[in-house]
């Protein structure tokens, strides 16, 4: 009925979300330029599918899911690319795809480095709950896994970070 109101609200809310979306993008992608690209692609996708957003539901979780899926696609594409160009043995040592070059790791500082070393699935769980402040249930929905899976990934990620940052944390 009030199509225009809901569309207006969508665009307003999306604009208001941008700072948080940029923070999440940086957490996932780590590299600022990659994060900007990710943000751009996410907003494009969100706008394209804005008709499918149900007014009255949480827009943030909806857009975070788009961003998270977009990032996973990107990670997979990079994995394919790196596997094409390296031998399998070397590939195994390349680390998590999307990982930063060594010189960038230095600039990240202790916290950034510790986060960067986490496997993708633990990092997204840690960021969604500890930084973005989502409840377990919401974070699990964004990632698309059962809540138990989310909490176990979160637990392992948290342990690893505490081990690594033990002396400062």
């Amino acid at each position: 009925m009030n199509a225009s109101t809901s569309q207006d609200r969508f665009c307003e809310e999306l604009t208001a979300l941008l700072p948080r979306l940029r923070r999440f993008a940086r957490g996932l992608a780590r590299d600022p330029a990659d994060a900007d690209d990710l943000c751009q692609q996410t907003v494009e996708r969100a706008l394209k599918s804005r008709q499918s957003w149900q007014d009255g539901t949480r827009l943030d979780a909806w857009v975070y899911r788009i961003m998270r899926n977009q990032w996973i696609d990107e990670v997979r594409a990079r994995t394919r690319r790196s596997q094409t160009f390296t031998h399998e043995e070397e590939g195994a040592n390349i680390g998590a795809p999307g990982d930063l070059a060594a010189e960038n790791l230095v600039e990240l500082g202790n916290v950034g480095r510790a986060l960067a070393r986490l496997p993708e699935e633990q990092r997204e769980a840690v960021i969604l709950v500890l930084v973005e402040g989502f409840a377990y249930k919401e974070a699990a929905e964004i990632i698309g896994v059962p809540q138990g899976t989310l909490t176990s990934r979160l637990g392992r990620g948290r342990e690893a970070l505490l081990r690594e940052l033990g002396e400062i944390a």
């Binding site: 700072p19 957490g27 500890l130 930084v131 505490l162 400062i168």
Partner: peptide
């Protein structure tokens, strides 16, 4: 730990948002 992580990423959320977005 939570404070460290937020201290690492929160500054991004106060950066000016690119106009393209």
């Amino acid at each position: 730990l939570r404070a460290l992580l937020r201290g690492h990423l929160d500054p991004v959320a106060v950066e000016p948002v690119p106009e393209s977005l």
